[in-house]
């Protein structure tokens, strides 16, 4: 893609759509499939004198790190080779965060379900919800309550969706002139500085850690 177009910001733009759609999908589905494919191996490991936490976390780290490495090799290296700037770094950062978030969510889904097909279905639903349905609902909210000052409310609602959060971090870099109009200034003030960065990072970390933690609790008690 970098060779097709001389304008790097346009390439980043296309990568963004891939990032927001494909990355969560692949990470989620791959994780679920992996979990069920190595189910027997997990059983075997649990028969050993190992703590369940260790086994679970080892699996989590293995999957997460391999997907992150895949992302860095696939998207990271080309972007870095063809020009490092703030938007490509943000792209990399949000991509990694999204990968981790969806690995966590998929693990949670996997431990909560009993069979593979169901787990994949639910993971797909989660993905579908966050990348499509949530935004549709948001748009409906915006339309329905357009008369009211919505800025702050939207800010909160958007923060609740990791995909949206990643997207906003990116458009703050890419479409800054459009955002500067209207309510954009508010978002920029909020997300554009270090505390905003810290805020969004912590929200994403919550999205990573909380599902893993719940999944771990479930896994410990689960009747394998």
């Amino acid at each position: 893609m970098y060779q097709l177009d001389t304008d790097t910001s346009k390439v980043i733009l296309s990568l963004l759509s891939i990032l927001l759609l494909i990355v969560p999908l692949i990470s989620g589905v791959f994780t679920t499939i992996h979990f069920y494919n190595s189910y027997e191996f997990t059983e075997l490991m649990l028969a050993q004198p190992l703590r369940r936490e260790t086994v679970f976390l080892a699996q989590y780290i293995a999957v997460a790190s391999s997907l992150c490495v895949a992302f860095v090799v696939g998207v990271g290296f080309p972007t870095l080779i063809y020009g490092v700037n703030s938007s490509s770094l943000t792209l990399l950062y949000t991509g990694l965060m999204l990968t981790l978030v969806f690995v966590s969510l998929a693990f949670l889904v996997a431990v909560l379900t009993r069979d593979k097909a169901k787990a994949i279905g639910v993971t797909l639903l989660v993905w579908f919800f966050f990348s499509l349905i949530y935004d549709a609902i948001l748009l409906w909210v915006v339309y329905a309550f357009g008369e009211y000052p919505l800025d702050k409310t939207l800010l909160v609602l958007v923060s609740l969706n990791p995909v949206d959060l990643a997207r906003i971090l990116m458009i703050l870099k890419l479409d800054i002139s459009a955002l500067m109009g209207y309510t954009g200034a508010l978002y920029k003030d909020f997300f554009g500085n270090y505390s905003g960065m810290l805020f969004s990072t912590s929200i994403l970390l919550v999205w990573i850690l909380v599902p893993v933690w719940i999944a771990l609790r479930v896994f410990k008690k689960k009747d394998i």
């Binding site: 927001l20 935004d135 906003i168 309510t183």
Partner: peptide, 20 residues
């Protein structure tokens, strides 16, 4: 046109749903 009517909708820009 949506943004013209409801400016806060700008926050949804570049989301998959808007693209569709």
């Amino acid at each position: 046109m949506i943004v013209e009517q409801v400016p806060p909708a700008m926050i949804l820009w570049r989301s998959f749903f808007v693209m569709i």
